[in-house]
């Protein structure tokens, strides 16, 4: 019983910690959007291109955040079952 509790708690805590990875993309995307706004302010005629490029960059920058999200999801939904089965 105790082992089960430890496993579940560790999984939950690990998922929470893994979501700290969301900080990086947040900062990065905010910076990218800010720079894009500056660029649009400087050259309003290139708005469409800047927006497309910014969205692409944001999507790529998001990848690390998504990796941490996947780890979190794995820890919540998949890891407890596999670990508990092994006990």
């Amino acid at each position: 019983m105790m082992e089960k509790a430890i496993v579940l708690a560790a999984c939950a805590i690990g998922a929470g910690i893994s979501m700290l990875g969301g900080i990086g993309p947040g900062i990065g995307e905010g910076y990218a959007v800010g720079k894009a706004c500056e660029a649009i302010g400087r050259q309003p005629e290139s708005k469409g291109e800047v927006t497309t490029t910014m969205l692409m960059g944001c999507a790529v920058a998001e990848t690390t955040g998504l990796y941490s999200l996947i780890i979190g999801l794995l820890l919540i939904f998949v890891a407890p079952i596999t670990f508990l089965n092994r006990l």
């Binding site: 999507a59 990848t63 998504l66 996947i70 999801l73």
Partner: peptide, 16 residues
């Protein structure tokens, strides 16, 4: 892998 996980992550996050 990053392409697959990007799409999967965004949509499945919505589902979850």
């Amino acid at each position: 892998i990053s392409m697959a996980i990007r799409l999967f992550g965004n949509i499945s996050t919505g589902v979850v």
